[in-house]
Design a protein around this nucleic acid. Structure first.
Lengths: 253, 253
DNA sequence: AAGTGGTCTAGACCACCGT
DNA sequence: CGGTGGTCTAGACCACTTG
């Protein structure tokens, strides 16, 4: 029925620099479908057989495209059921970006308490990190995370204002699930990957008060840049972690 | 020539709990070849076609096995050349386990200065982490790492003594490349993966002196457990990182 | 030119999930 | 049972490296 949307590049005669295998072209097309919202978080995408017909390739080629996307946490395969668009609303992916765990594996109650949310304009530092113009709108959120009632993390979060218009403290407080879940379902901004930079620092007066530690005591500073599709940075986050009874766990493959 | 070594399990009639696809059985066989030293770090393994014949499966099945092993950094594919056993001697994989980077991307001179190496007996803590008997032999190494001459990391390293007999300060000093490279080439112990737990702590007198920081100033404590084949822990390392001009970089997929 | 890994296909069959 | 993803095969051809 449909003409082959891939065929033009199918026999890439370009010698090597721009060579891209078919399955990667399919992958790019599928990412476009995600960006465009054709397939929404939590949805099932069409079956491999359907996609093979749609893109006029074999099922094996579609599989390779999906394999890569699943490896990058964009899609989730479920044998017997289908392939689904990954979502931050799924409790299973809650700790995908939060590497903090209690020293004694017991995962107690978790609580996020946002206490400030304001429109500011981008400082030179924020503008540089988020690749936006100096002075352009930015949403700044401040919050404390508690585990079993005790404050463990103080976050200062900077968002590209353009993408999060109308975000307010009330909305933050009203929302039950994680921040990324809110960003995804209310603002349509999906975080795909992130970079974190860690340092040890001394608690200043504010940190000390919020985290109920002595001023000058050591804190783990975690700076995160989170990216959406196309490697576009949309969030910069500075988190101060009190590592009295928790630690940051990292698996090195 | 050879009888099919896989066939017995080929048609797994066990309903589901123990089901293991062919390619994963091939993978396990190949891991055995690595453990046994049939294929040594840096070596090329047989071609996919040869392995397909040897295991009496199709090339595609061998490929899937190799795919997984390459994804787990056990093997390295090189198009046109072959598939090679990963090695810590390869400078490209030097930073596979070291996530410390300078704040300004400039990667200056690196220097490892071991200054102590002794046989001790396993304390309760070390015994628990390394899964060995209390009091059994352990090699303890202490060293400082310098970047551009400045001390940045102080490591206390505990190794399962049984596997590292004859390790001495002289040998450590004589060896040019990384510790893991030495472990691999001299003792035949390959580190496959590791877990790191990070906390912020205050520098004690010893740390402070070795890292030339004020006593009580914040340090990043990185505790690492490194595993060899079969998820066997063989190294426990406590590293104190001075994060004045460096940070710990982590990519969240 | 020969040898290696990398891509793509078409088809068969298996494991898992829902109805 | 039908539909989904998962495995396995055999064969063709492409891209990269080396001689």
């Amino acid at each position: 029925m449909s003409l082959d949307p891939v065929d033009p590049a199918r026999h890439m005669r370009t010698p090597s620099l721009t060579f891209s295998p078919l399955y990667r072209q399919i992958k790019e097309l599928m990412i476009k479908s995600l960006e465009a919202g054709e397939w929404r978080p939590g949805d099932a995408i069409p079956s491999e057989a359907e996609l093979a017909v749609r893109f006029n390739v074999s099922q094996g080629t579609v599989r390779k495209a999906i394999d890569e996307m699943a490896a990058e946490n964009m899609l989730v395969r479920r044998q017997g059921k289908g392939t689904f668009v990954a979502t931050h609303s799924d409790p299973r992916s809650f700790f995908r970006f939060l590497r903090l765990v209690p020293d004694n594996g017991e995962l107690g109650n978790y609580q996020s308490e946002p206490f400030a949310c304001q429109q500011i304009s981008a400082s030179p530092e924020v503008a540089a990190v988020l690749h936006i113009d100096l002075g352009s709108p930015v949403v700044k959120i401040e919050r404390v995370m508690r585990f079993d009632g005790k404050p463990v993390v103080f976050d200062e979060i900077f968002l590209v204002g353009e993408l999060f218009e109308g975000l307010s403290l009330e909305r933050l407080r009203a929302f039950e699930r994680s921040l990324y879940s809110l960003f995804e379902s209310v603002f349509g901004v999906r975080m795909i990957r992130a970079e974190e930079r860690l340092r040890a620092v001394e608690a200043d007066a504010r940190n000390a008060e919020l985290l109920t530690v002595e001023m000058g005591s050591p804190l783990l500073l975690v700076e995160r840049i989170a990216f959406t599709y196309g490697n576009k940075p949309v969030e910069w986050r500075r988190g101060y972690y009190a590592t009295r009874q928790h630690h940051y766990l990292n698996e090195l493959g």
